[in-house]
Design a protein around this nucleic acid. Structure first.
Length: 431
RNA sequence: UCCGGCGUAGCUCAAUGGUAGAGCGGGUGGCUGUUAACCACUAGGUUGGGGGUUCGAGUCCCUCCGCCGGAGCCA
């Protein structure tokens, strides 16, 4: 009998007998010759069943197969131009483990609502399979980049006692009779961890109870958040752009096949490299006004504004030094202009929006105490956070990068819900 | 929360206010190289719910529900 292998390794077995374990993606038949598109989770291969080569009994078995039935197939691997992918399997053995009844997703176009209701099955499709592989590579690239640069993974809690920036966008939970929230960022803990371990990152799910109903929003999404002690805004920006560039190069290196399935224009990714263009918030406002947009200094950019700004560049666009009033209280003021905060956003090209947000943190005890009071936040809840400014305070910076937005940009998919296995949105909790 | 769009067979969609249809999927049969194969036959409907106008409503009006994506907010 042939070696047990997977479809992704099939080209190594040309001319040899192999055994594949998988599911029926589709079948076609001309009466005396049958084509079984076999899916095994690693790829899809055309398997040919000809009555010239196999018994009538085996052909009869083939004819009972339905979409997504579970089968083990044995046969000889052959290079053939007529086969999608260039290789096919000449079948001489077929075991049926389970015959699927009325698989809901037909080989045709479906609406997104229907597909999302069947997300647990939709993931088997070629396109979703490709997106999940790119997502895996993006996550692996994040970890490799940070690990190889001496960052330490230090997990931050998902259940938190207090609101970082108010409670309106937080999911409240009952914690044995006390109120608690699902985290919207690991950042405050990250700051403590950075003072303890120099360069750290956390990587986990994040929750936002925003009533956003757009293609760019999920209520549960994954974020990687590096934080560095002894690091200013410029150092922070360099880490962020290097991380983004590394992720793109890794996906291009390892997932060309999947980008091809997604029909992604990879030339838009191949040009990505550091340094990324940098503009200040004030310069960005000028750019918008010159483009004829009625935008006043001091406002925050909307989705449309971001698209207009990023369309001027083929690289991700770094925007830095925002009005302090529109940024979080913990952001350090610009010593050269007190109206500004040392924050940074990175906008992905092609209108995919903000993929990175971060900045240098306020490290002065008195200033931070004042800011907490000015924002009407409960000072007592922030005592541990203020301790970081009492004991060995140093300049430190960090940023968060949204995994789904990066995956969406790299894959070229218009909607974030396809970039996470089981999306949670304002109206979707199942499956 | 506001604005706009949509809701017809399992799915994707048709149907001037006048007999509710097609393709895919399912079933049956045919076909020896198919590429979401093809051909023939076949089963499958409370047109999202309720109310109204009309001789007559899938179609027009009101209302409720659900979904979609845009604003706000954000990664």
């Amino acid at each position: 009998m042939g070696s047990l292998t997977t479809i992704q390794r099939l080209s190594e077995f040309a001319g040899q007998s192999v055994e594949l374990q998988g599911w029926v993606y589709n079948t076609r038949s001309s009466g005396k010759i049958g084509f079984l598109m076999l899916r095994d989770g690693t790829g899809i291969v055309q398997s040919v069943i000809s009555t010239d080569d196999v018994s009538g009994e085996l052909f009869g078995t083939f004819e009972t197969l339905t979409q997504e039935s579970a089968v083990t197939v044995r046969g000889e691997v052959r290079e053939d131009k007529r086969a999608p992918g260039g290789y096919e399997l000449l079948v001489n053995g077929l075991d049926v483990h389970h015959v699927a009844q009325d698989y809901p997703i037909a080989p045709k176009e479906h609406g997104t609502a229907f597909l999302m209701d069947h997300r647990h099955l939709w993931l088997r499709s070629r396109r979703q399979h490709a997106i999940m592989l790119v997502r895996h590579e993006v996550i692996r690239a994040c970890r490799d980049f940070l690990d190889n640069n001496d960052f330490v993974l230090v997990d931050t809690p998902i259940i938190t006692p207090n609101a970082v920036e108010g409670t309106t966008t937080l999911f409240a939970i009952d914690y044995f009779g006390r109120s608690a929230y699902l985290t919207q960022s690991g950042q405050l803990y990250n700051e403590a961890n950075a003072i303890a371990l120099k360069k750290v990152y956390c990587f986990g799910p994040t929750f936002r109870a925003e009533k956003s109903k757009t293609r760019r929003h999920l209520t549960e999404f994954w974020m990687v958040e590096p934080e560095m002690a002894y690091c200013d805004l410029d150092g922070n920006i360099e880490w962020a752009e290097q991380l983004v560039a590394y992720i793109v190069s890794r996906v291009l290196e390892t997932r060309m096949e999947q980008l091809d399935v997604l029909e992604r224009d990879v030339s838009r990714l191949e040009v990505i490299g550091t340094p990324f263009p940098r503009v200040s918030y004030t310069e960005a406002v000028d750019m918008l006004q010159k483009a004829g947009i009625d935008f006043q200094w001091g406002g925050d950019f909307g989705g449309g504004d971001e698209t207009i700004l990023s369309e001027n560049f083929e690289q991700p666009l770094i925007i830095h030094r925002f009005p302090a009033a529109i940024k979080a209280f913990y952001m350090k003021r610009d010593p050269d202009d007190e109206r500004l905060a040392l924050g940074v956003d990175i906008l992905a090209p092609e209108g995919y929006g903000e993929i990175v947000g971060g900045g240098q943190r306020e490290d002065d005890l008195d200033t931070l105490t004042t800011l907490i009071k000015q924002n009407d936040l409960p000072l007592e809840d922030y005592q541990w956070y203020l301790d970081l400014r009492r004991y060995g305070s140093v300049p430190h910076s960090g940023f968060g990068m949204g995994i789904e937005r990066v995956v969406g940009w790299i894959c070229g998919v218009p909607h974030l819900r396809e970039t996470i296995p089981y999306p949670r949105t304002l109206t979707r909790l199942e499956p």
